[in-house]
Write a protein that binds this DNA or RNA. Structure first.
Length: 858
RNA sequence: GCCCGGUUGGCGGAACUGGUAGACGCAGCGGACUCAAAAUCCGCCGGCCUUGCGGUCAUGUCGGUUCGAGUCCGACACCGGGCACCA
């Protein structure tokens, strides 16, 4: 008897695969390609079980497709720029690069222990000048092609630290370090003009048939196309400012006669013009700007307004004017930053009107109600109905009224019906050190001048001081001082770096030729693109995926990618998070699961014996210390157990709770397979005939092949695992029977176990490779083709049909697979379990769904 | 606040297109093996009523459609993800 010893066999096979370069791939036109991409990680320090889950799923697909004969590209790299490196540098007095590369080394070693089938020769890190040089080249091409613009936008400003803050660094409206209330401040920044592509990005969602519906829906809503009317209202300004009209956008032009106020954003140009001239307005606006820039913060803030004293003239009645308010809930980024409020038919407008005592006039009435009976209480009426109180619109439907108002506004040259998008341009400027420098120079004479491509990369300086807040590039004594590339005069480098989303928006393309001296290589991109299967967390459903879709288009138009569908990722799978409960000591310290002992539902700190609080199970994160490091699991059980457990039990798209008990179960199963191998009779020739028991086992085996294959294709790995357990149980039952030594049963048992080994190869590659070798399999298992199910063994001749009486199951029938309906009905009515309820009367109705069910209605 | 998900035994979950609710695993209970323990193997395992056969309730809550609803429709509750500078 031998022992299953993962500590010995896992490194053994990893070495074999590495020496043979099993997973290193090249362009090979003789074979179909398949590109599997796992979202690359941010090198935060250590791998956690969430990564293990993501990368195990990717590996199952990669190894499966390889067995199916594809030339599989499965690369891995590092999303290595970002804020945490700067924070760590500040805290530990190291350099962001030192910290980042140390983390990459640690995490690479962990990933290698897992035996994922990556082509490590293609590894890349986005902070490597080799990578960001090509990104800067892309930026210059985008700039030339008109995909880049420069404009002003709002940032979070910490007035004490005098620095821009990320939304994450704003806690309850205050700067995370200084504690000072954050303000919105306007800054001129670089943008990618993604909104120009809004329409095609929206239209193309339709074609993403292998993406989850929820992601497609979220993207469509994010882009947010709406039809509306943009039109001009004349202003009565009483001479305060010279501002003759206000441009307003609405998606509900039909409600025009229900308007009771106009609202403008605190950041609207008119507001700025009025600030010094209307008593109290400057204070009100300053108050509104004392808030972060996030939409969540703005939308959940208390709705407040300020009456400017101006009045806007109703476009269809010169004698009708409404007050103009500055309101804190109106976003300057959407529409024109100005609206007209219709309290009866918009909840936010209604709340606002009640607060400031404005009219509430219903102009759309539910179809089944008389207009005079229709009153608005606390809830706005947002459904469709019939127009009332609306002069020439009375009696129209909402759609008719919308069309009519747009028609009249256009005829009077007061406005036009237009399409608007919620999607805003992508601001890529960051006032930070650890990112790719934006390769332009600001010249006092020539303006913005691109850095010539031959001067790339624009490298980050290494001698920087990160101990004080603010952008170290701006402070650096010499780095920014350069001659203008055009005129040679003294000029200054752009000190903004790029959003890290830029880095991750094209890495999939770079992987196809990671060492090319241009961003991509035409032949490699032509062969490898698109990504056939992309796998990662659902938290990236909108931003990262949308930006990548934009990049794929922009890269095609600048000659860096073949056209294909215009989309980078043909199929997408979004997996759920790995969660763990949290532990907190009475002094507020977070404790890691390793420091805690749980007994009878109570937790104590192992070192002190003190009672501690068990918190809710949430996504594993470094800050709450509820992570489980795979090294401990791998050390105790082996990588295959960790992998197999991550695939068991939970549907991949759902969040999972990490439990040690589950790992035990997975480990037990792998050990059990090993023992089954030890007890297996010697290999023998296929017998001439099979008895009933051997045939039943062979049927189970071939049904498992068919089922597991479908489960892998459909990303239902948990079901595949359950099927493998069932087949193992069937083999064990056959083995324990008296006739187990009979040649037909012995053959079926061996066939069954060999099948398990082959089907499990993508999930537990080391154990199965070792078993394959010991069972006398040819060559390496990793090079074997995927097993095929024998279709004569996957269908049954006799099936069990449940019989219901009035929809409740009362019995079962055994019938031939293709039995006629009349025969089934006769059998059903004759069944004693049914006759019991019939009591001799004929049934009212018998419903027979072939192959599924019989329902007798009495 | 807005957009998107989820909710099934003690636990993770299964149930193909509306057709046997609880596959498979974990935990638990009982037994075998053992001096003993571990490991392993066998059996039981949603609630209630019933000695049993069986009956009945049950898929977050309330209502609806249907011969039949975990699955479809309408309301609601709770939990989670995203909201453009976390990645």
């Amino acid at each position: 008897m031998t022992r299953y010893d993962p500590a010995a066999i896992e490194p053994k096979w990893q070495d074999v695969w590495r020496e043979r370069r099993t997973f290193e791939v090249e362009v090979d036109h003789s074979r179909p390609k398949y590109y599997v991409l796992d979202m690359f990680p941010y090198p935060s320090g250590r791998i956690h079980m969430g990564h293990v889950r993501n990368y195990t799923m990717g590996d199952v697909i990669a190894r499966y497709k390889r067995a199916r004969g594809f030339n599989v590209l499965h690369p891995m790299g590092w999303d290595a720029f970002g804020m945490p490196a700067e924070n760590a540098a500040m805290q530990n007095n190291t350099h962001p690069a030192t910290w980042t590369y140390a983390n990459i080394d640690a995490m690479r070693a962990q990933l290698k222990k897992l035996g994922i089938s990556y082509d490590w020769s293609r590894e890349l890190a986005t902070c490597d000048p080799e990578y960001y040089a090509q990104q800067q080249a892309l930026f210059l091409d985008f700039l030339e092609a008109g995909f880049v613009s420069r404009k002003s936008s709002m940032v979070n400003w910490d007035p004490v630290d005098m620095t821009v803050l990320a939304n994450e660094q704003v806690i309850d409206g205050k700067g995370w370090r200084s504690g000072a209330p954050v303000e919105r401040r306007e800054l001129t920044q670089w943008f990618f003009r993604i909104s120009d592509m809004a329409d095609e990005l929206l239209e193309a969602i339709e074609g993403l048939s292998k993406w989850p519906d929820k992601v497609r829906l979220m993207q469509a809503n994010w882009i947010g196309r709406s039809q509306g009317l943009q039109f001009r209202w004349a202003l009565e300004t009483s001479g305060i400012v010279d501002w003759p009209e206000l441009e307003v956008f609405t998606t509900r032009p039909d409600t025009i006669f229900g308007a009771s106020f106009c609202g403008i954003s605190p950041d609207h140009p008119l507001t700025k013009a009025l600030e010094g001239k209307v008593e109290g307005l400057a204070e009100f606006c300053a108050d509104c700007r004392r808030s972060g820039t996030s939409e969540e913060e703005i939308e959940t803030a208390e709705k407040r307004g300020f009456d400017t004293g101006l009045r806007a003239v109703h476009p269809f009645d010169p004698g009708w004017t409404v007050p103009v308010y500055v309101a804190n809930f109106i976003l300057m980024d959407y529409g024109t930053g100005a609206i007209f409020g219709v309290p009866a038919h918009d909840q936010r407008d209604l709340d606002f009107a009640r607060k400031y005592g404005l009219d509430v006039l219903p102009v759309v009435c539910p179809g089944d109600l008389d207009a005079s009976d229709f009153k608005i209480g606390d809830e706005a009426f947002v459904d469709t109905g019939r127009l009332v109180n609306s002069r020439f619109l009375d009696g129209m439907t909402v759609d008719e009224a919308k069309a009519e108002v747009i028609r009249r506004a256009e005829q009077a040259k007061q406005g036009e019906g237009i399409t608007r998008y919620r999607l805003r341009d992508w601001g890529v400027s960051r006032q930070r050190y650890w990112g790719a420098p934006i390769p332009v120079v600001h010249c006092p004479a020539c303006g913005v001048v691109p850095v010539p491509k031959e001067d790339l990369p624009v490298r980050l300086p290494e001698d920087v001081d990160l101990s004080i807040p603010g952008n170290p590039l701006e402070r650096h004594p010499t780095w920014a001082d350069v001659p203008c590339p055009k005129c040679g005069a003294a000029a200054r480098r752009e000190t903004d770096t790029m959003d890290t989303f830029v880095d991750s928006s094209w890495y999939f393309a770079r992987f196809t030729a990671p060492k090319a001296d241009t961003p991509t290589d035409a032949e490699a991109a032509e062969y490898w693109m698109n990504v056939d299967q992309y796998i990662g967390g659902v938290e990236h459903a909108i931003l990262h995926l949308l930006y990548s879709r934009f990049f794929a288009r922009a890269m095609h138009r600048t000659g860096h990618l073949p056209e294909r569908s215009g989309e980078p990722f043909d199929a997408l799978f979004t997996q759920g998070m790995v969660c763990h409960e949290t532990y907190r000591a009475s002094d507020g310290r977070w404790l890691s699961p390793e420091e805690v002992t749980i007994a009878d539902g109570a937790a104590t700190e192992t070192s002190s014996g003190n009672r501690i609080e068990i918190g809710p199970s949430i996504k594993m994160s470094k800050s709450k210390r509820n992570t489980v490091d795979p090294d401990a699991i791998i050390g105790q059980y082996g990588a295959d157990t960790a992998r197999f457990f991550m695939l068991s039990d939970s549907p991949p798209e759902r969040d999972v709770e990490w439990t040690a008990a589950g790992v035990e179960g997975a480990s037990r199963f792998l050990n059990r397979l090993w023992r089954m191998m030890e007890e297996l009779p010697d290999r023998s020739a296929m017998p001439d005939s099979f008895g009933a028991e051997a045939t039943a086992l062979r049927r189970a085996t071939h049904k498992t092949i068919a089922g597991v294959t479908l489960d892998i294709e459909g990303f239902t790995f948990n079901k595949a695992v359950a099927r493998l357990y069932e087949l193992a149980n069937a083999i064990a039952r056959a083995a324990s029977n008296a006739g187990a030594a009979q040649p037909d049963i012995a053959f079926a048992r061996r066939e069954g176990l060999e099948t398990i080994v082959r089907l499990m190869s993508p999930m537990a590659p080391h154990l199965t490779e070792e078993m394959w070798e010991r069972m006398g399999g040819a060559d390496l298992l990793v090079d074997q083709p995927w097993p095929e199910a024998d279709s004569s063994l996957t269908t049954d001749d006799v099936i069990v049909l449940p019989v219901q009486v009035n929809g409740k199951k009362r019995g079962e029938l055994e019938v031939a697979k293709d039995a006629a309906k009349e025969d089934i009905e006769a059998l059903a009515l004759g069944n004693p379990d049914v006759a019991r309820f019939l009591e001799g009367r004929p049934p009212r109705k018998v419903i027979i769904v072939p192959g599924r069910i019989v329902n007798v209605v009495i």
